[in-house]
Amino acid sequence: HNLTITQGKLFFHYNPKLCLSEIHKMEEVSGTKGRQERNDIALKTNGDQASCENELLKFSYIRTSFDKILLRWEPYWPPDFRDLLGFMLFYKEAPYQNVTEFDGQDACGSNSWTVVDIDPPLRSNDPKSQNHPGWLMRGLKPWTQYAIFVKTLVTFSDERRTYGAKSDIIYVQTDATNPSVPLDPISVSNSSSQIILKWKPPSDPNGNITHYLVFWERQAEDSELFELDYCLKGLKLPSRTWSPPFESEDSQKHNQSEYEDSAGECCSCPKTDSQILKELEESSFRKTFEDYLHNVVFVPRKTSSGTGAEDPRPSRKRRSLGDVGNVTVAVPTVAAFPNTSSTSVPTSPEEHRPFEKVVNKESLVISGLRHFTGYRIELQACNQDTPEERCSVAAYVSARTMPEAKADDIVGPVTHEIFENNVVHLMWQEPKEPNGLIVLYEVSYRRYGDEELHLCVSRKHFALERGCRLRGLSPGNYSVRIRATSLAGNGSWTEPTYFYVTDYLDVPSNIA
Protein backbone atom coordinates (compact mmCIF):
# COMPACT_ATOMS: atom_id res chain seq x y z
CA HIS A 1 0.00 0.00 0.00
CA ASN A 2 1.14 3.52 -0.75
CA LEU A 3 1.27 5.87 2.23
CA THR A 4 1.71 9.61 1.81
CA ILE A 5 1.66 12.14 4.64
CA THR A 6 1.14 15.51 2.98
CA GLN A 7 1.27 17.51 6.19
CA GLY A 8 2.65 16.77 9.63
CA LYS A 9 5.65 14.79 10.72
CA LEU A 10 6.71 11.54 12.47
CA PHE A 11 7.20 11.13 16.19
CA PHE A 12 8.99 7.99 17.56
CA HIS A 13 9.93 7.50 21.20
CA TYR A 14 10.35 4.50 23.55
CA ASN A 15 10.45 1.72 20.97
CA PRO A 16 13.30 -0.45 22.33
CA LYS A 17 12.78 -3.23 19.77
CA LEU A 18 12.39 -0.92 16.74
CA CYS A 19 15.62 -0.24 14.88
CA LEU A 20 16.34 3.26 13.63
CA SER A 21 16.87 1.90 10.14
CA GLU A 22 13.21 0.88 10.02
CA ILE A 23 12.16 4.38 11.16
CA HIS A 24 14.27 5.94 8.43
CA LYS A 25 12.56 3.67 5.89
CA MET A 26 9.25 4.96 7.17
CA GLU A 27 10.43 8.51 6.51
CA GLU A 28 11.25 7.59 2.93
CA VAL A 29 7.98 5.86 2.05
CA SER A 30 5.77 8.44 3.76
CA GLY A 31 7.45 11.46 2.23
CA THR A 32 8.22 13.10 5.57
CA LYS A 33 11.97 13.03 5.36
CA GLY A 34 13.45 16.34 6.45
CA ARG A 35 10.38 17.53 8.36
CA GLN A 36 11.32 15.97 11.70
CA GLU A 37 13.23 17.93 14.23
CA ARG A 38 16.17 16.44 16.16
CA ASN A 39 14.09 15.35 19.16
CA ASP A 40 11.13 13.93 17.21
CA ILE A 41 12.96 10.64 16.66
CA ALA A 42 14.73 9.67 19.89
CA LEU A 43 18.13 8.10 19.33
CA LYS A 44 18.42 6.60 22.82
CA THR A 45 14.96 5.05 23.30
CA ASN A 46 14.43 3.54 19.85
CA GLY A 47 16.18 0.25 19.14
CA ASP A 48 18.21 0.34 22.33
CA GLN A 49 17.22 -3.30 23.11
CA ALA A 50 17.41 -4.61 19.56
CA SER A 51 20.23 -5.96 17.46
CA CYS A 52 20.04 -3.72 14.45
CA GLU A 53 22.24 -5.13 11.72
CA ASN A 54 23.32 -3.62 8.49
CA GLU A 55 25.85 -6.23 7.31
CA LEU A 56 25.40 -9.82 6.15
CA LEU A 57 27.13 -12.68 7.96
CA LYS A 58 28.01 -15.67 5.81
CA PHE A 59 28.63 -19.21 7.02
CA SER A 60 32.06 -20.48 6.04
CA TYR A 61 31.94 -24.09 7.29
CA ILE A 62 29.13 -26.57 7.98
CA ARG A 63 29.63 -30.17 9.06
CA THR A 64 26.96 -32.59 10.27
CA SER A 65 26.63 -35.86 12.14
CA PHE A 66 23.51 -37.68 13.28
CA ASP A 67 23.16 -35.57 16.46
CA LYS A 68 25.51 -32.61 15.95
CA ILE A 69 26.06 -29.68 13.60
CA LEU A 70 29.36 -27.78 13.53
CA LEU A 71 29.07 -24.22 12.25
CA ARG A 72 31.60 -21.50 11.50
CA TRP A 73 30.98 -18.08 10.00
CA GLU A 74 33.04 -15.21 8.71
CA PRO A 75 34.57 -12.95 11.37
CA TYR A 76 32.92 -9.64 12.09
CA TRP A 77 34.30 -6.73 14.11
CA PRO A 78 32.62 -3.31 14.49
CA PRO A 79 34.66 -0.10 14.13
CA ASP A 80 35.31 -0.25 17.84
CA PHE A 81 35.92 -3.97 18.42
CA ARG A 82 35.10 -3.51 22.11
CA ASP A 83 31.44 -3.00 21.16
CA LEU A 84 31.13 -6.66 20.05
CA LEU A 85 29.79 -8.61 23.04
CA GLY A 86 29.31 -11.85 21.13
CA PHE A 87 26.98 -13.69 18.79
CA MET A 88 23.49 -15.09 19.17
CA LEU A 89 22.81 -18.38 17.38
CA PHE A 90 19.15 -19.17 16.68
CA TYR A 91 17.93 -22.61 15.61
CA LYS A 92 14.81 -24.76 15.61
CA GLU A 93 13.34 -27.77 13.83
CA ALA A 94 11.98 -26.86 10.41
CA PRO A 95 10.24 -29.60 8.40
CA TYR A 96 9.66 -27.08 5.61
CA GLN A 97 11.87 -24.29 4.33
CA ASN A 98 9.40 -21.48 5.00
CA VAL A 99 10.64 -20.20 8.36
CA THR A 100 10.96 -16.51 9.23
CA GLU A 101 12.82 -14.87 12.06
CA PHE A 102 9.62 -13.77 13.75
CA ASP A 103 7.72 -17.08 13.76
CA GLY A 104 5.99 -17.74 17.06
CA GLN A 105 6.82 -14.36 18.54
CA ASP A 106 4.43 -12.99 21.14
CA ALA A 107 3.91 -9.66 22.88
CA CYS A 108 6.29 -10.62 25.68
CA GLY A 109 9.20 -11.03 23.30
CA SER A 110 9.47 -14.82 23.45
CA ASN A 111 9.54 -16.90 20.29
CA SER A 112 9.96 -20.46 19.06
CA TRP A 113 13.72 -20.29 18.52
CA THR A 114 16.39 -21.85 20.70
CA VAL A 115 19.04 -19.20 21.39
CA VAL A 116 22.71 -19.78 22.21
CA ASP A 117 24.97 -16.94 23.37
CA ILE A 118 28.49 -17.29 21.96
CA ASP A 119 31.55 -15.34 23.08
CA PRO A 120 33.55 -13.57 20.37
CA PRO A 121 36.84 -15.20 19.35
CA LEU A 122 40.22 -13.79 20.25
CA ARG A 123 40.99 -10.83 18.05
CA SER A 124 44.15 -11.01 15.98
CA ASN A 125 46.32 -8.01 15.24
CA ASP A 126 46.46 -9.07 11.62
CA PRO A 127 43.12 -8.23 9.94
CA LYS A 128 43.72 -10.92 7.29
CA SER A 129 44.07 -13.79 9.77
CA GLN A 130 41.09 -13.35 12.05
CA ASN A 131 39.66 -16.45 13.71
CA HIS A 132 36.30 -17.61 12.43
CA PRO A 133 33.74 -17.82 15.24
CA GLY A 134 31.63 -20.95 15.44
CA TRP A 135 29.58 -23.31 17.55
CA LEU A 136 29.00 -27.05 17.91
CA MET A 137 25.27 -27.76 18.22
CA ARG A 138 24.69 -30.90 20.30
CA GLY A 139 21.78 -33.10 21.27
CA LEU A 140 19.98 -32.80 17.95
CA LYS A 141 17.58 -35.30 16.45
CA PRO A 142 18.86 -37.57 13.68
CA TRP A 143 17.63 -37.03 10.13
CA THR A 144 15.95 -33.75 11.07
CA GLN A 145 16.08 -30.42 9.23
CA TYR A 146 16.94 -27.35 11.28
CA ALA A 147 16.57 -23.67 10.46
CA ILE A 148 19.60 -21.68 11.65
CA PHE A 149 20.74 -18.08 11.63
CA VAL A 150 23.22 -16.03 13.63
CA LYS A 151 23.51 -12.35 14.45
CA THR A 152 25.81 -10.12 16.45
CA LEU A 153 25.28 -8.71 19.91
CA VAL A 154 26.78 -5.22 20.26
CA THR A 155 26.80 -2.55 22.95
CA PHE A 156 24.97 0.74 22.91
CA SER A 157 26.78 3.39 20.86
CA ASP A 158 26.77 6.95 22.08
CA GLU A 159 27.12 8.18 18.54
CA ARG A 160 24.07 6.04 17.64
CA ARG A 161 25.85 4.56 14.71
CA THR A 162 23.75 1.57 13.72
CA TYR A 163 26.01 -1.35 13.03
CA GLY A 164 25.87 -5.10 13.42
CA ALA A 165 25.54 -8.16 11.22
CA LYS A 166 23.10 -11.00 10.69
CA SER A 167 23.07 -14.06 8.47
CA ASP A 168 20.32 -15.35 6.27
CA ILE A 169 18.31 -18.31 7.53
CA ILE A 170 19.91 -21.53 6.34
CA TYR A 171 18.54 -25.08 6.50
CA VAL A 172 20.76 -27.95 7.60
CA GLN A 173 19.72 -31.58 8.00
CA THR A 174 21.41 -33.94 10.43
CA ASP A 175 22.66 -37.30 9.22
CA ALA A 176 20.79 -40.57 9.46
CA THR A 177 21.65 -43.20 12.05
CA ASN A 178 20.40 -46.58 13.17
CA PRO A 179 16.62 -46.66 13.52
CA SER A 180 14.84 -47.77 16.66
CA VAL A 181 13.39 -51.27 16.86
CA PRO A 182 10.29 -52.18 14.84
CA LEU A 183 7.15 -51.95 16.95
CA ASP A 184 4.57 -54.56 17.92
CA PRO A 185 5.82 -57.64 16.04
CA ILE A 186 3.13 -60.33 15.90
CA SER A 187 3.68 -63.87 14.64
CA VAL A 188 1.03 -66.47 13.94
CA SER A 189 0.87 -69.78 12.12
CA ASN A 190 -1.72 -70.47 9.47
CA SER A 191 -0.49 -73.94 8.48
CA SER A 192 1.94 -76.63 9.52
CA SER A 193 4.72 -75.12 7.40
CA GLN A 194 4.14 -71.35 7.50
CA ILE A 195 4.38 -68.47 9.96
CA ILE A 196 2.94 -65.04 9.21
CA LEU A 197 4.86 -62.12 10.69
CA LYS A 198 3.49 -58.58 10.96
CA TRP A 199 4.94 -55.47 12.58
CA LYS A 200 4.78 -51.68 12.68
CA PRO A 201 7.49 -49.24 11.57
CA PRO A 202 9.95 -47.90 14.17
CA SER A 203 8.89 -44.89 16.19
CA ASP A 204 12.22 -43.24 15.31
CA PRO A 205 13.24 -44.24 11.77
CA ASN A 206 16.24 -41.84 11.92
CA GLY A 207 16.32 -41.92 8.14
CA ASN A 208 14.30 -43.40 5.29
CA ILE A 209 13.49 -47.04 6.04
CA THR A 210 14.72 -48.96 3.01
CA HIS A 211 14.08 -52.54 4.10
CA TYR A 212 13.66 -54.97 6.96
CA LEU A 213 15.71 -58.06 7.75
CA VAL A 214 13.90 -61.09 9.14
CA PHE A 215 15.91 -64.00 10.54
CA TRP A 216 14.38 -67.18 11.88
CA GLU A 217 15.89 -70.01 13.84
CA ARG A 218 14.46 -73.35 14.87
CA GLN A 219 14.31 -73.77 18.63
CA ALA A 220 15.14 -76.99 20.45
CA GLU A 221 12.52 -78.41 22.77
CA ASP A 222 13.07 -78.16 26.52
CA SER A 223 15.66 -80.61 27.80
CA GLU A 224 13.30 -81.86 30.51
CA LEU A 225 11.07 -83.35 27.81
CA PHE A 226 13.85 -85.80 27.00
CA GLU A 227 14.68 -86.62 30.62
CA LEU A 228 11.39 -86.97 32.50
CA ASP A 229 9.32 -90.15 32.57
CA TYR A 230 5.78 -89.00 31.90
CA CYS A 231 4.42 -92.44 32.68
CA LEU A 232 4.99 -91.81 36.39
CA LYS A 233 1.80 -91.25 38.33
CA GLY A 234 1.04 -87.61 39.04
CA LEU A 235 3.28 -86.22 36.30
CA LYS A 236 1.24 -84.08 33.96
CA LEU A 237 1.69 -84.61 30.25
CA PRO A 238 3.45 -81.68 28.54
CA SER A 239 1.67 -79.83 25.79
CA ARG A 240 2.52 -77.04 23.41
CA THR A 241 0.15 -74.82 21.48
CA TRP A 242 0.75 -73.24 18.13
CA SER A 243 0.37 -69.53 17.50
CA PRO A 244 -3.31 -68.72 16.83
CA PRO A 245 -4.31 -66.91 13.65
CA PHE A 246 -4.81 -63.16 13.49
CA GLU A 247 -8.07 -61.65 14.59
CA SER A 248 -10.22 -60.10 11.91
CA GLU A 249 -9.22 -56.71 10.65
CA ASP A 250 -12.37 -55.14 12.06
CA SER A 251 -11.55 -56.27 15.57
CA GLN A 252 -8.11 -54.73 15.31
CA LYS A 253 -9.29 -51.22 14.48
CA HIS A 254 -8.18 -48.66 17.01
CA ASN A 255 -10.48 -46.24 18.75
CA GLN A 256 -13.46 -48.58 18.45
CA SER A 257 -16.13 -49.29 21.02
CA GLU A 258 -15.95 -52.65 22.77
CA TYR A 259 -19.70 -53.02 22.69
CA GLU A 260 -21.70 -53.58 19.56
CA ASP A 261 -25.27 -52.64 19.01
CA SER A 262 -27.41 -55.73 18.66
CA ALA A 263 -29.34 -54.02 15.87
CA GLY A 264 -26.25 -53.73 13.67
CA GLU A 265 -23.01 -51.84 13.36
CA CYS A 266 -22.10 -49.20 15.89
CA CYS A 267 -19.96 -46.13 15.56
CA SER A 268 -16.66 -45.86 17.37
CA CYS A 269 -16.45 -43.85 20.55
CA PRO A 270 -13.97 -40.98 20.34
CA LYS A 271 -11.14 -41.01 22.83
CA THR A 272 -11.17 -38.46 25.61
CA ASP A 273 -8.34 -35.99 26.15
CA SER A 274 -7.18 -37.94 29.19
CA GLN A 275 -7.01 -41.18 27.18
CA ILE A 276 -5.02 -39.50 24.41
CA LEU A 277 -2.66 -37.92 26.96
CA LYS A 278 -2.18 -41.27 28.67
CA GLU A 279 -1.34 -42.96 25.36
CA LEU A 280 1.19 -40.24 24.55
CA GLU A 281 2.82 -40.66 27.97
CA GLU A 282 2.98 -44.44 27.51
CA SER A 283 4.49 -44.02 24.05
CA SER A 284 7.09 -41.58 25.38
CA PHE A 285 7.96 -43.91 28.24
CA ARG A 286 8.30 -46.86 25.88
CA LYS A 287 10.67 -44.94 23.61
CA THR A 288 12.77 -43.82 26.58
CA PHE A 289 12.89 -47.34 27.96
CA GLU A 290 13.88 -48.77 24.56
CA ASP A 291 16.69 -46.25 24.27
CA TYR A 292 17.87 -47.22 27.76
CA LEU A 293 17.91 -50.90 26.85
CA HIS A 294 19.79 -50.23 23.63
CA ASN A 295 22.44 -48.17 25.40
CA VAL A 296 22.87 -50.30 28.53
CA VAL A 297 21.88 -53.88 27.83
CA PHE A 298 23.06 -54.43 24.27
CA VAL A 299 26.82 -54.37 23.80
CA PRO A 300 28.01 -53.83 20.21
CA ARG A 301 30.11 -56.59 18.69
CA LYS A 302 33.77 -55.88 18.17
CA THR A 303 34.67 -55.69 14.53
CA SER A 304 37.85 -57.16 13.20
CA SER A 305 40.92 -54.96 13.47
CA GLY A 306 44.00 -54.79 11.34
CA THR A 307 45.69 -57.51 13.42
CA GLY A 308 43.98 -60.30 11.50
CA ALA A 309 41.47 -61.20 14.21
CA GLU A 310 38.27 -62.60 12.75
CA ASP A 311 34.83 -61.22 13.37
CA PRO A 312 33.01 -63.84 15.48
CA ARG A 313 29.69 -63.20 13.75
CA PRO A 314 28.57 -65.83 11.24
CA SER A 315 28.36 -64.53 7.72
CA ARG A 316 24.92 -63.98 6.28
CA LYS A 317 23.90 -66.29 3.49
CA ARG A 318 20.64 -66.01 1.60
CA ARG A 319 18.66 -69.21 1.28
CA SER A 320 15.58 -70.06 -0.64
CA LEU A 321 12.49 -70.58 1.45
CA GLY A 322 12.33 -74.19 0.32
CA ASP A 323 15.48 -75.00 2.27
CA VAL A 324 14.23 -73.64 5.57
CA GLY A 325 12.56 -76.83 6.74
CA ASN A 326 15.87 -78.55 7.47
CA VAL A 327 17.63 -75.71 9.17
CA THR A 328 18.87 -77.61 12.19
CA VAL A 329 21.06 -80.65 12.68
CA ALA A 330 19.15 -83.76 13.74
CA VAL A 331 20.79 -86.03 16.31
CA PRO A 332 19.36 -89.40 17.39
CA THR A 333 18.16 -89.64 20.98
CA VAL A 334 20.10 -92.85 21.63
CA ALA A 335 22.96 -93.62 19.28
CA ALA A 336 22.69 -97.40 19.70
CA PHE A 337 19.20 -97.58 18.22
CA PRO A 338 18.94 -96.07 14.75
CA ASN A 339 15.16 -96.46 14.52
CA THR A 340 14.46 -93.73 17.08
CA SER A 341 13.32 -90.38 15.71
CA SER A 342 15.59 -87.38 15.35
CA THR A 343 13.53 -84.92 17.37
CA SER A 344 16.37 -83.62 19.51
CA VAL A 345 17.41 -80.42 17.80
CA PRO A 346 20.69 -78.95 19.05
CA THR A 347 21.50 -76.12 16.69
CA SER A 348 25.06 -75.72 15.54
CA PRO A 349 26.38 -72.25 16.40
CA GLU A 350 28.33 -72.16 13.13
CA GLU A 351 25.24 -72.71 11.02
CA HIS A 352 24.03 -69.86 8.85
CA ARG A 353 20.59 -68.66 9.79
CA PRO A 354 18.11 -68.24 6.96
CA PHE A 355 16.83 -64.72 6.45
CA GLU A 356 14.66 -62.70 4.14
CA LYS A 357 14.92 -59.08 3.03
CA VAL A 358 11.55 -57.31 3.09
CA VAL A 359 11.06 -54.12 1.06
CA ASN A 360 8.10 -51.71 1.04
CA LYS A 361 5.89 -53.66 3.42
CA GLU A 362 5.56 -54.61 7.09
CA SER A 363 4.69 -58.30 6.80
CA LEU A 364 6.23 -61.57 5.69
CA VAL A 365 5.07 -65.14 5.19
CA ILE A 366 7.85 -67.54 6.20
CA SER A 367 7.37 -70.84 4.38
CA GLY A 368 9.06 -74.21 4.26
CA LEU A 369 9.10 -74.68 8.04
CA ARG A 370 8.87 -77.91 10.01
CA HIS A 371 5.48 -78.77 11.42
CA PHE A 372 4.71 -78.08 15.09
CA THR A 373 8.12 -76.59 15.74
CA GLY A 374 9.00 -73.49 17.71
CA TYR A 375 10.90 -70.73 15.92
CA ARG A 376 12.57 -67.62 17.24
CA ILE A 377 12.19 -64.76 14.79
CA GLU A 378 14.48 -61.74 14.75
CA LEU A 379 13.35 -58.52 13.08
CA GLN A 380 15.52 -55.51 12.22
CA ALA A 381 14.69 -52.22 10.51
CA CYS A 382 17.30 -50.74 8.17
CA ASN A 383 17.54 -47.28 6.62
CA GLN A 384 20.60 -47.91 4.47
CA ASP A 385 21.55 -50.77 2.19
CA THR A 386 24.90 -49.75 0.73
CA PRO A 387 27.82 -49.41 1.21
CA GLU A 388 26.94 -51.26 4.42
CA GLU A 389 23.67 -51.96 6.14
CA ARG A 390 22.60 -49.64 8.93
CA CYS A 391 20.03 -51.50 10.98
CA SER A 392 18.32 -51.32 14.33
CA VAL A 393 18.66 -53.52 17.35
CA ALA A 394 16.61 -56.66 16.80
CA ALA A 395 13.07 -57.19 18.02
CA TYR A 396 12.34 -60.81 18.92
CA VAL A 397 9.16 -62.84 18.71
CA SER A 398 8.47 -66.56 18.93
CA ALA A 399 5.96 -68.72 17.13
CA ARG A 400 5.14 -72.40 16.67
CA THR A 401 3.79 -73.90 13.47
CA MET A 402 0.56 -75.87 13.44
CA PRO A 403 0.62 -79.67 13.86
CA GLU A 404 0.66 -81.95 10.86
CA ALA A 405 -2.20 -84.40 10.55
CA LYS A 406 -1.15 -88.05 10.96
CA ALA A 407 2.44 -87.07 11.76
CA ASP A 408 2.16 -88.89 15.11
CA ASP A 409 0.80 -92.11 13.60
CA ILE A 410 2.98 -95.20 13.91
CA VAL A 411 3.96 -96.34 10.44
CA GLY A 412 4.51 -99.99 9.67
CA PRO A 413 3.42 -103.18 11.40
CA VAL A 414 3.67 -103.91 15.10
CA THR A 415 5.76 -107.07 15.42
CA HIS A 416 6.14 -109.37 18.38
CA GLU A 417 8.45 -112.03 19.71
CA ILE A 418 7.42 -114.56 22.36
CA PHE A 419 9.94 -115.67 24.98
CA GLU A 420 9.83 -118.11 27.83
CA ASN A 421 7.84 -117.41 30.97
CA ASN A 422 5.07 -115.93 28.82
CA VAL A 423 6.99 -112.75 27.97
CA VAL A 424 6.07 -111.01 24.72
CA HIS A 425 8.36 -108.39 23.20
CA LEU A 426 6.38 -105.87 21.12
CA MET A 427 8.31 -103.79 18.57
CA TRP A 428 7.33 -100.87 16.34
CA GLN A 429 8.84 -97.93 14.52
CA GLU A 430 8.68 -94.45 16.05
CA PRO A 431 7.08 -91.79 13.80
CA LYS A 432 9.83 -90.28 11.68
CA GLU A 433 8.60 -86.67 11.78
CA PRO A 434 6.35 -86.31 14.83
CA ASN A 435 4.75 -83.07 15.98
CA GLY A 436 7.49 -81.81 18.24
CA LEU A 437 8.60 -85.05 19.83
CA ILE A 438 7.04 -88.26 21.14
CA VAL A 439 6.82 -88.22 24.94
CA LEU A 440 5.21 -91.64 25.50
CA TYR A 441 3.36 -94.57 23.93
CA GLU A 442 0.09 -96.12 24.99
CA VAL A 443 -0.18 -99.91 24.59
CA SER A 444 -3.70 -101.36 24.80
CA TYR A 445 -3.94 -105.16 24.90
CA ARG A 446 -6.55 -107.72 25.89
CA ARG A 447 -6.99 -111.44 26.01
CA TYR A 448 -10.02 -112.80 24.24
CA GLY A 449 -12.96 -112.59 26.64
CA ASP A 450 -11.17 -110.32 29.17
CA GLU A 451 -11.16 -106.57 29.75
CA GLU A 452 -8.73 -104.33 27.92
CA LEU A 453 -5.52 -103.44 29.77
CA HIS A 454 -3.29 -100.40 29.24
CA LEU A 455 0.45 -99.98 29.53
CA CYS A 456 2.37 -96.68 29.39
CA VAL A 457 5.78 -96.79 27.69
CA SER A 458 8.05 -93.83 28.29
CA ARG A 459 10.37 -92.35 25.71
CA LYS A 460 13.47 -93.69 27.46
CA HIS A 461 11.97 -97.14 27.89
CA PHE A 462 11.10 -97.34 24.21
CA ALA A 463 14.64 -96.33 23.24
CA LEU A 464 16.10 -99.14 25.38
CA GLU A 465 13.69 -101.89 24.33
CA ARG A 466 12.87 -100.80 20.79
CA GLY A 467 9.35 -101.22 22.05
CA CYS A 468 8.15 -102.85 25.28
CA ARG A 469 7.75 -106.25 26.95
CA LEU A 470 4.51 -107.69 28.25
CA ARG A 471 5.17 -110.01 31.18
CA GLY A 472 3.11 -112.52 33.12
CA LEU A 473 0.58 -113.10 30.38
CA SER A 474 -1.94 -115.85 30.80
CA PRO A 475 -2.23 -118.36 27.96
CA GLY A 476 -4.69 -117.38 25.25
CA ASN A 477 -5.34 -115.27 22.18
CA TYR A 478 -4.35 -111.59 22.46
CA SER A 479 -4.88 -108.44 20.45
CA VAL A 480 -2.78 -105.30 20.87
CA ARG A 481 -3.01 -101.69 19.64
CA ILE A 482 -0.49 -98.89 20.09
CA ARG A 483 -0.61 -95.13 19.71
CA ALA A 484 1.95 -92.39 20.22
CA THR A 485 1.49 -89.20 22.22
CA SER A 486 3.42 -86.12 21.11
CA LEU A 487 3.50 -82.51 22.26
CA ALA A 488 0.50 -81.90 20.02
CA GLY A 489 -1.59 -84.72 21.50
CA ASN A 490 -2.42 -88.30 20.65
CA GLY A 491 -1.85 -89.99 17.34
CA SER A 492 -4.07 -92.68 15.84
CA TRP A 493 -4.27 -96.24 17.11
CA THR A 494 -2.55 -98.86 15.02
CA GLU A 495 -4.46 -101.71 13.49
CA PRO A 496 -4.83 -104.61 15.99
CA THR A 497 -2.04 -107.15 16.03
CA TYR A 498 -2.82 -110.69 17.20
CA PHE A 499 -0.66 -113.30 18.90
CA TYR A 500 -1.16 -116.47 20.91
CA VAL A 501 0.50 -117.24 24.23
CA THR A 502 0.83 -120.90 25.16
CA ASP A 503 1.17 -122.37 28.63
CA TYR A 504 4.91 -122.74 29.00
CA LEU A 505 4.35 -125.70 31.42
CA ASP A 506 2.75 -127.68 28.56
CA VAL A 507 5.68 -127.21 26.21
CA PRO A 508 6.88 -130.72 25.10
CA SER A 509 10.33 -131.70 26.30
CA ASN A 510 13.10 -133.01 24.07
CA ILE A 511 14.43 -135.26 26.83
CA ALA A 512 13.74 -138.97 26.17
Results as ranks from 00 to 15, higher is better:
203 S>Y: 04
206 N>Y: 04
208 N>T: 05
211 H>C: 01
211 H>P: 01
211 H>R: 05
212 Y>P: 00
215 F>L: 09
220 A>I: 10
222 D>R: 12
222 D>C: 13
222 D>K: 11
223 S>W: 12
223 S>A: 12
224 E>M: 15
224 E>S: 08
226 F>L: 10
229 D>H: 05
229 D>A: 10
230 Y>K: 14
233 K>I: 05
238 P>H: 04
238 P>R: 06
241 T>R: 09
243 S>G: 11
243 S>T: 08
244 P>F: 08
245 P>S: 12
245 P>A: 06
245 P>T: 13
246 F>L: 10
247 E>R: 13
247 E>S: 10
247 E>W: 06
249 E>P: 03
253 K>S: 09
255 N>G: 07
259 Y>R: 08
261 D>L: 09
261 D>T: 07
263 A>W: 02
264 G>H: 04
265 E>S: 06
268 S>P: 13
270 P>M: 14
270 P>I: 07
271 K>L: 12
273 D>Q: 13
278 K>G: 12
282 E>T: 08
283 S>T: 10
284 S>W: 15
285 F>V: 05
287 K>A: 05
287 K>S: 06
288 T>G: 11
289 F>L: 08
289 F>V: 12
290 E>M: 10
291 D>N: 15
292 Y>G: 02
292 Y>I: 05
292 Y>E: 05
293 L>S: 04
296 V>S: 09
298 F>K: 01
299 V>Y: 12
301 R>N: 03
301 R>V: 09
303 T>H: 04
304 S>I: 07
304 S>E: 09
305 S>I: 07
305 S>P: 14
306 G>P: 15
307 T>W: 08
309 A>H: 14
310 E>R: 07
317 K>Q: 10
320 S>F: 10
321 L>D: 06
323 D>W: 14
324 V>T: 04
327 V>C: 14
327 V>M: 11
328 T>Y: 15
331 V>D: 13
335 A>E: 13
336 A>L: 12
338 P>W: 11
339 N>C: 08
340 T>Y: 12
342 S>K: 03
342 S>I: 03
344 S>A: 09
345 V>R: 07
345 V>I: 14
351 E>A: 10
352 H>N: 04
353 R>M: 14
355 F>W: 14
357 K>E: 14
359 V>S: 10
361 K>S: 09
361 K>R: 04
362 E>I: 12
365 V>A: 15
367 S>Y: 06
369 L>D: 01
371 H>V: 07
373 T>M: 09
374 G>N: 13
376 R>F: 14
376 R>V: 04
377 I>V: 08
378 E>H: 15
381 A>T: 12
383 N>L: 08
385 D>V: 08
386 T>H: 08
388 E>S: 09
388 E>F: 08
389 E>S: 10
394 A>G: 14
394 A>M: 10
395 A>L: 08
395 A>P: 02
396 Y>S: 13
398 S>L: 14
400 R>D: 05
401 T>L: 03
402 M>S: 14
404 E>M: 12
407 A>H: 15
407 A>K: 04
408 D>V: 01
408 D>G: 02
409 D>K: 10
412 G>F: 10
414 V>G: 02
415 T>F: 06
423 V>P: 03
424 V>Y: 05
425 H>N: 14
431 P>F: 01
435 N>Y: 00
438 I>V: 13
438 I>D: 01
442 E>C: 13
442 E>M: 04
442 E>I: 07
448 Y>D: 11
449 G>S: 13
450 D>T: 08
452 E>S: 03
453 L>S: 06
456 C>I: 02
456 C>W: 01
458 S>L: 07
461 H>F: 13
462 F>Y: 03
462 F>P: 01
463 A>L: 12
466 R>D: 08
469 R>P: 03
470 L>W: 02
471 R>D: 04
472 G>N: 09
472 G>R: 05
477 N>V: 02
477 N>L: 06
478 Y>N: 00
480 V>I: 14
486 S>C: 01
486 S>M: 00
488 A>V: 10
488 A>P: 02
490 N>C: 10
491 G>W: 00
494 T>R: 02
497 T>P: 00
498 Y>K: 12
498 Y>R: 11
499 F>W: 02
500 Y>N: 14
502 T>W: 06
506 D>W: 11
